[in-house]
């Protein structure tokens, strides 16, 4: 059975639906990305699962008979902008929240040491949190979410606000965590989702518009974008490109031609043949990655 089933969750604020009829289930040991633009309801969904807000309708069921129990026992939560008691040291804070999560003092100390090691904060454990950098705080935030060995780890935009190095550290950490916990994290960066997640929930305006593995999502879209550029603009190029049967849309952005094609294999073959025959001065031939925007545009338009 799934670790968690969310059934028809809806949250209404003053007649505005923050999220509407959101249903999904999380399998044990999966890492799931909740993907969507700002304001699509990611944080609302996560806070609901963390037990902070009650759904207006719908319910959340853990595999334990836990409708009656406190969710917070099984869930570790990292808010989008974690704030700590800045007068404490990193280690003190971890021990404090560990004890709040019903660990004994000895257990909390032991667990804090392990986690400080894991998130690479061992050297600064005796430093006041007010002296920590943004990346350190984010890692401390992840450590505090893990302190009571939760079954489900919920991370709200864990890497979005970090510089490339901090982002890399957090993503590596998540890859590490994936081995023995279920992770649900939100992001608006497709690359992050692609890199660590097994599954993706695509959220827009409070609705889930797609869900499945990254691979499935891409194949559902069924089209690929190719980017072409030439050193000198050939004549009648647009008409000529449109004649190729596997190309079904041509756009021009600056000097790049964006071709939307159905089947990458045949399109590539046919295109290069035409380029060769016409002796066009090709300077760029790129299979563009499906960007979040493309994915959205396609999914929303459907």
């Amino acid at each position: 059975m799934a670790l968690l089933d969310a059934n028809h969750l809806t949250k209404t604020y003053k007649n505005v639906n923050a999220i509407q009829d959101v249903s999904f289930s999380l399998e044990h040991g999966k890492c799931v990305a909740l993907l969507g633009p700002n304001g699509s309801g990611k944080t609302t969904t996560l806070r609901m699962l963390a037990g902070f807000i009650k759904p207006t309708s719908g319910d959340i069921a853990f595999d334990q008979d836990s409708l009656t129990k406190d969710f917070r026992n099984f869930v570790g939560y990292l808010p989008q902008f974690p704030v700590f008691h800045n007068w404490m040291t990193g280690k003190e804070f971890l021990i404090y929240v560990g004890q709040l999560a019903k660990l004994s003092k000895d257990e909390a100390i032991k667990r804090a040491d392990e986690l400080l090691e894991l998130v690479n904060l061992k050297e600064v454990r005796k430093l006041k949190i007010s002296k920590y950098s943004g990346g350190m705080k984010q890692r401390l935030g992840i450590a505090q979410a893990l302190i009571h060995a939760p079954k489900l780890i919920i991370l709200d935009e864990p890497a979005s606000a970090l510089d490339p190095i901090g982002r890399r550290e957090v993503l590596n950490l998540m890859r590490e965590l994936k081995k023995d916990a279920t992770i649900l994290f939100s992001t608006h960066i497709l690359n992050d989702a692609e890199e660590v997640s097994d599954e993706i929930l695509l959220l827009n305006e409070g609705h889930i518009i797609e869900q499945g593995s990254m691979h499935e999502l891409e194949s559902v879209q069924n089209t690929v974008t190719l980017k072409l550029a030439f050193s000198e603009e050939p004549k009648f190029i647009e008409d000529r490109l449109k004649e190729i049967e596997s190309v079904f849309k041509v756009n021009q952005i600056d000097k790049d031609y964006l071709l939307t094609v159905h089947d990458l294999q045949t399109a590539r073959k046919q295109l290069l043949e035409v380029v060769y025959q016409e002796n066009w001065q090709l300077t760029k031939f790129e299979v563009a990655k499906t960007s979040l925007e493309d994915l959205f545009m396609k999914a929303v338009k459907k």
């Binding site: 037990g51 917070r72 026992n73 902008f81 704030v83 709040l100 935030g141």
Partner: peptide, 12 residues
Amino acid sequence: SGVYELIMSKPV
């Protein structure tokens, strides 16, 4: 400050 959110994410 927002610490409350972190504290209350534990079964307090």
